[in-house]
Amino acid sequence: MHDLTAVAGSVPDPELPVVTLAELGVLRSVREPTPGGPVEVELTPTYTGCPAIEAMAADIERALLEHGVTEVSVRTVLAPPWSTDDITSEGRRKLADAGIAPPRGGAAPGSGPVPLTLAIHCPNCGSTETSLISRFSSTACKALRRCEACREPFDHFKEV
C-alpha cells in the first residue's frame, strides 16, 4: 500500500515539474479496498479552478497502471482545503532551487513553533529587498515579484 502511495506521490506536478504531488501536498489518499482490486485516489486542488487537476489525475492513473494496477479512480476532494502549509520542506527547497520563492510559514514537522518570516527572499540572490509586481502571475497559485537588489523578476508561491 505504501508502495502505491509512493508511486502516486512521485508523479511530478504538471505545471511545476520540479516538485512531486506528494511534496506539493495535494495527494490526500491512495486506497486499495480489496488487494489487487481497483485503486481509489483522492486529490485536492491548490485553487478551486486549478486547470492542472485533470492532468494530475491522468498522470496518477498512468503511473499506477504502469505499476501493474488494473483499475484506478481519482476523486477530487475540497475539504479540508489545501493550504500552502501542506507543501513539504523538501518541496519548498526544490521550489527555491527552481527560482520560485516558496510560501511563507509552514514549519517542517517537529521543528517547534512556526518561525515568523515576513520577508520574501529573492530566490536568485537571497536579498529580502523584494517588491510585488502583481498578485497574479503565470498560474493561479503564484504572484509576480521583483528583487530590488539584483533586479530579477521572480515568481512567489503565494500563501493561502
Partner: peptide
C-alpha cells in the same frame, strides 16, 4: 500583469 490578474480571477470563479 492585469491581463494575467483578470484571467486568474476569472479562472477561480469558473472553478467555483
Amino acid at each position: 500583469e492585469e491581463e494575467l490578474a483578470l484571467a486568474n480571477i476569472a479562472l477561480d470563479l469558473l472553478g467555483q
